[in-house]
């Protein structure tokens, strides 16, 4: 393992590390700024880099706890931020799960089955996905307005409707999973079929367990998308207690006054579920699950 190294190698390693540290600082800086804004008293977007005074007023408000203001009056939380957070988690998790179910089965069909117009279909999926969602907002609004007339729980201002809208955006997930299925040798499923498995059993007991890492990645991407998405949610949801956190925290920014401190605290809160899901999913994202099945 010990490769002979040039003398200048050490300096290049130091330089590379310095470069990486600068890069990380660059990425971390906005996050630290948001964190500081949420901890500074008052609602200002700018201020000391190191705050002279730490205040938890914004966090209390965001978490729904009344606090005593400097002038002595009791400030009641104005918005149900925790409810928004719960809405976000619910919508993101459900749309992620349903999306995963659909995209996995769909990807299986594209990867393993023979049918007419296969190439055209999967390419058109890609093309449709490239069309910016924002341009379709009016159509999406009209569609869900109509749907609501027949199926109330899928209409405007419902989480069902939002989940349905998010689940529509799985074309990229299908591509991702199909790409992974393509790398798994077909012989393994054929062996299962000769062993007595129906096509569904071969899919369920043989292909799926080997694809767990990619399924986790796709779920994670869908979940992040669900928590962060703004345009569709802002059009479909109107009532305050139905909002997702991405749409809801916009309420802290009035025309006349920007509550930057509260906004910052809520923004960090919305990143929390994503981090937790990522940490949970990580243990499934192991490589080498398919190793040893066939001659490499």
């Amino acid at each position: 393992m010990a490769v002979v190294l040039d003398k200048s190698h050490r300096w290049r390693v130091v330089a590379a590390h310095l470069g990486l540290i600068c890069f990380i600082a660059l990425i971390m800086f906005p996050f630290l700024m948001i964190l500081l804004i949420s901890l500074r008293p008052g609602n200002f977007s700018t201020g000391d880099l190191i705050p002279s005074q730490i205040s938890l007023e914004h966090w209390k408000l965001v978490l729904g706890i009344p606090y005593q203001a400097a002038d002595g009056r009791l400030v009641e939380p104005e918005f149900p931020v925790l409810l928004w957070l719960w809405n976000s988690i619910k919508v993101a998790a459900l749309s992620g799960l349903i999306g995963l179910l659909l995209s996995t089965t769909c990807a299986y069909a594209f990867a393993r089955m023979r049918f007419a117009f296969k190439a055209q279909l999967i390419n058109s999926l890609m093309l449709v996905q490239m069309f910016p969602t924002v341009l379709a907002l009016v159509a999406i609004y009209a569609i869900f307005d109509q749907i609501g007339g027949y199926v109330p729980w899928l209409g405007l201002d419902t989480h069902g409707g939002l989940i349905l809208a998010y689940t529509g955006g799985i074309a990229l997930h299908i591509w991702t999973i199909k790409g992974y299925f393509d790398t798994i040798p077909v012989e393994i499923e054929e062996a299962a079929k000769v062993d007595g498995a129906t096509p569904f059993q071969a899919f369920r007991y043989v292909l799926l367990p080997m694809a767990v890492p990619i399924l986790m990645v796709v779920f994670l991407l869908a979940f992040i998308q669900g928590v962060n998405e703004y345009p569709i949610a802002s059009v479909l949801l109107k009532q305050q207690d139905q909002l997702t956190i991405a749409v809801g925290i916009k309420m802290f920014l009035y025309e006349q006054k920007y509550f930057w401190g509260d906004f910052a605290a809520a923004a960090i809160l919305s990143g929390l579920p994503i981090s937790i899901v990522f940490l949970l999913a990580q243990r499934w994202m192991t490589s080498g699950l398919t190793a040893g099945g066939v001659k490499g």
């Binding site: 040798p185 012989e187 079929k193 000769v194 498995a197 043989v206 080997m210 066939v294």
Partner: peptide, 29 residues
């Protein structure tokens, strides 16, 4: 279908189930 023909096949690439142990591989059918 292959499952009902009473045949067993050994593949060139072995085609074992990588996520199962040897015993599970053999018992799968």
């Amino acid at each position: 279908p292959p499952a009902k023909r009473g045949v067993a096949m050994v593949f060139q690439s072995y085609a074992l189930y990588p996520h199962m142990t040897v015993a599970e591989n053999m018992a799968f059918g």
